[in-house]
Simulated assay, not measured.
Amino acid sequence: MDIIWKEVTYSYQENLKEALTLYHNSFPIEVREPEAVFLQSLKNAEIHLPNQYHFLVGFQDDELISLVTAHYLADVNTGFIVYLVTNPKIRSKGLGKQSLQSIEEILQQDSIAAGYESLDAIILETETEEMVHTKIEKEDCVKRTNFFMRNGFHKVEDFLYLQPPIHDDGVDVPLHLFIKNRSRQELKKSEVKRIVKAMYVEKYHHGNGIAKEVLNRSYSKMNLENSDLFCN
């Protein structure tokens, strides 16, 4: 499958509207973030170096078939994949794998630009089994888990992770963390804690605009440490 990959940037938003339509059609409103979050993250990418943000779209025969967004977190040399969306008409044709490979290559370039030899890890969030209610939702959940595991990710075990409130309801959402370790050494739990801290600050504070006190409250619920997220 020949795919043409293009990046949406804050200065070049030609494909943004079409990509957001695919995004809105792929997720229920309860889990969708406002479009302003994408725009703010794109804007941050121009000023938060060496941290980065990527909004990658894939086209085949002028049809949008894939969308991947991800942050590069320089302090922990880790990529954080936020969304991976594929056109439902062409799923199960290797598109998801190609999308992962493409964003991984870009995150690897970010790592080198930040002064590292290679990217250490890639992390992402997935729903827990308790979040699904119907048979179809459960099947989709299992498929996503198997997909990530086939592509080198494994679930971080014995780790309470909460996605901070992305809506005004103030509700934390328990999620699984899946991580792909690209370094030769096994990631310790202390290193995963540092990655989560970087996710909270770069994605959820700078990108989503969630207040510091809200993030500190969510962070403290995970029993990771007592220190303020925003203190060095």
Rank of each mutant, 00 (worst) to 15 (best):
K89T: 10
P34D: 15
K155R: 15
V132T: 10
L95S: 04
E225V: 09
H167Q: 13
E7T: 02
L187Q: 09
N51V: 00
K89G: 05
K180P: 11
Y200M: 12
V142C: 06
E33H: 14
L215S: 03
F147A: 09
L224H: 01
S66G: 08
K180A: 01
Q109Y: 11
L107R: 06
D75C: 06
H154C: 10
T128A: 09
L215M: 08
K135Y: 07
Y83I: 06
V201K: 08
S227D: 15
E18S: 13
F230N: 12
M199Y: 07
L95Y: 08
K6E: 03
Y72E: 12
A70K: 05
H154Y: 12
I179C: 06
S220F: 12
A121N: 06
P50Y: 09
A211Q: 15
V192M: 03
I106T: 12
D169I: 07
N25T: 07
S190R: 10
L73E: 06
H54S: 06
W5M: 05
A114Y: 09
S118M: 10
S102W: 04
K193M: 13
F38R: 03
A113Q: 15
T134E: 07
D62P: 01
K6A: 00
W5H: 03
T9N: 02
D140H: 08
E127G: 00
E125K: 14
L73Q: 02
D169R: 00
D62E: 13
C141L: 15
A19P: 00
F59N: 01
L73I: 11
T86N: 08
M131R: 15
S190Q: 14
G209D: 11
E225D: 15
Y116D: 10
G115D: 07
L162V: 10
E125L: 12
T86G: 00
N232I: 13
I29A: 09
V171H: 08
V196K: 02
D169V: 06
K138W: 10
N44L: 11
E7L: 13
Q101E: 15
A113N: 14
H133G: 07
G94T: 01
E137V: 03
V76Q: 02
H154V: 13
D61S: 10
V31H: 12
N151Q: 13
K188T: 14
R150W: 05
I103Q: 01
L119C: 08
S227R: 05
L160Q: 11
L20M: 15
Y83A: 09
I81H: 01
L67Y: 04
D158L: 08
F38P: 00
S190F: 06
Y161M: 11
Q109N: 15
E127D: 10
M131T: 03
